[in-house]
Simulated assay, not measured.
Amino acid sequence: MSHLSRTLPLKRAAHVYLVQDQRLLLVAERMDDGSIFYGLPGGKAGPGESLADAAVRQVQVETGLTVTDLNFVSLLEGEMLTGTRNECYAIFGRFTAHFRGELNPTDPEVVGTRWVPFDEVMALVRYGPPPEVEERNPLIWVPTRDFLKGESRSYYPI
């Protein structure tokens, strides 16, 4: 079987950079191994759902905030977690948006939210094992690092 004939499941997800006073909103989630993971609000798109619609829905659940006026920032795309049970072809959109409301997550996996100064965001990121957790892949965080430096590109191949 040639490399190109494999069929990989598609994973489409969208995350939003919510910014206030040079601080970025991150959500804290408990991972399967019990550790706390800080990530961008957002998540997986449902079948037939646009990335923008997924971003609005997921941010509402994970933060309690209502987001409007989404602006596309970047797309991250490529094969992820090759050789693991979570192997997939990932299409991840990143947006900025206006927001209103109070922080009040209703997602049971979210254990908190935090406004983090730009210069502290990357220090919260945890890389490494377990290997099947995409959020720990350093490539996933390159668009965010660039965004925080004001150097976003529109496309990032994984």
Score class of each variant (00 low, 15 high):
P130Y: 04
P131I: 03
T68F: 12
S154V: 06
E109H: 13
P47V: 03
M122G: 03
M1K: 09
E135D: 11
R153L: 02
H3P: 00
D53I: 05
V27P: 04
D21M: 03
R126K: 13
R57E: 04
P117C: 07
Y89S: 07
L81D: 03
V19D: 09
V59R: 02
Y89V: 05
T96L: 03
V121F: 02
G46L: 15
F99Q: 01
E87L: 11
T66M: 10
N86S: 12
F147L: 02
F118A: 05
D119P: 09
R57Y: 05
R12P: 00
V19Y: 01
T82W: 13
L10Q: 15
R85K: 14
M80R: 14
D21N: 13
M1A: 07
P157T: 06
S5L: 09
R136S: 07
A123E: 12
V142W: 01
P117S: 07
K11V: 12
F72R: 13
T113F: 01
A90V: 05
T7A: 14
Q20L: 12
Q22H: 15
V73G: 00
R23M: 09
I140K: 13
G128L: 00
M31Y: 10
L26D: 06
A28R: 15
P108R: 08
P9E: 05
Q58I: 03
D33T: 07
A13Q: 12
F95E: 05
R57I: 02
R136M: 10
G128H: 03
R100T: 11
C88D: 10
H3W: 09
E109D: 14
Q58H: 12
S2N: 13
G43L: 05
L51F: 06
I158D: 00
P143W: 00
A54K: 09
L4V: 06
S50V: 09
S35H: 10
K44D: 13
V27D: 02
D69S: 12
S154R: 11
V121M: 08
P157K: 08
P157D: 05
V56Y: 03
R100K: 12
Y127L: 12
A97N: 01
E29H: 09
S152C: 04
V27F: 01
H98N: 13
M80E: 14
Y89A: 01
A54Y: 10
D32S: 11
G46Y: 14
L81S: 08
Q58S: 08
L65Q: 04
D32A: 14
P131L: 10
A13L: 04
L65N: 11
H3C: 00
D32V: 08
R126G: 02
S2V: 02
P108W: 11
T66D: 13
T96R: 00
P47W: 11
K44S: 12
S50R: 05
K149I: 01
L26E: 07
L75C: 06
V125P: 02
L25N: 04
P108T: 10
P47I: 08
L25D: 11
F118Q: 00
T82S: 09
R57Q: 08
G46R: 15
G46F: 10
G78T: 07
